[in-house]
Computed example of a mutant assay.
Amino acid sequence: MQRAIFLVRSIQGIRKPTFRSRLMALANSNYQIVVLLAMTNFDEIWQAKREFKLIKLPAETQNIRLINLADIYADHDGIALSDDDYLTPDLTQLKSYESHAGKLPVTRFVGADGNIVAETLFGEDSTRLHTILFDKNSRIIQINNYDDADKLFGIEKYTNNLLDESLLLNAKGQLVFRFTNYLQPQKTTYDLTDSSVIPLPAELTALPGQKDDDMLKSYEAQGASTITKAVSYTNYRRYDDINAFYHQVLLNMDLENAQTYVDIDHLVEAAKYLPGKRIFNY
Rank of each mutant, 00 (worst) to 15 (best):
A270V: 13
D77G: 13
N68T: 01
A27I: 11
E119N: 15
L169V: 02
V231E: 12
T88Y: 01
D77Y: 11
M253P: 11
L169R: 04
D71H: 07
T61L: 13
D135E: 11
K211F: 01
M253Y: 13
T18V: 00
T107M: 10
D84H: 00
N243F: 07
Y31I: 08
L37M: 00
N145K: 06
Q12V: 14
S29I: 05
Y273A: 08
E220L: 06
P58H: 10
D125L: 11
E44P: 10
I155L: 12
D113I: 09
D135G: 13
A271G: 01
Q222D: 13
L121N: 08
P105S: 06
D113L: 07
L267I: 08
P89M: 03
A25W: 09
Y246A: 03
Q62Y: 05
A258Y: 00
Q62F: 03
R108D: 12
N28G: 01
D113H: 04
Q210H: 04
I264G: 03
L54S: 12
A202T: 14
S196V: 11
D254N: 15
L129E: 02
L36K: 03
T88P: 02
L66A: 01
L255I: 04
R178N: 12
D71W: 04
D241Y: 10
A38E: 04
I141R: 06
M1N: 09
L200R: 13
D43H: 11
S29T: 05
K211H: 03
V197L: 14
D147L: 01
F153I: 08
D90Q: 09
L36H: 06
N170I: 02
F122Q: 07
S232H: 03
P208Y: 02
R3D: 08
T205Q: 11
L274F: 08
L91P: 04
I67P: 09
K95S: 15
I67N: 06
I264R: 02
T92M: 15
T193K: 13
V8R: 04
E60T: 10
H130K: 12
I132M: 14
V35C: 01
Q222S: 10
T88C: 03
D164T: 06
L37E: 03
D212C: 07
L104W: 14
T92N: 14
Q184R: 04
T180Q: 05
Y182F: 12
D213C: 07
Y86M: 01
G209S: 08
E98N: 01
M39S: 15
F134Q: 08
G123F: 09
T88K: 06
H76G: 10
R65N: 08
Y236V: 09
A70T: 06
T159M: 05
A244Q: 05
N281P: 12
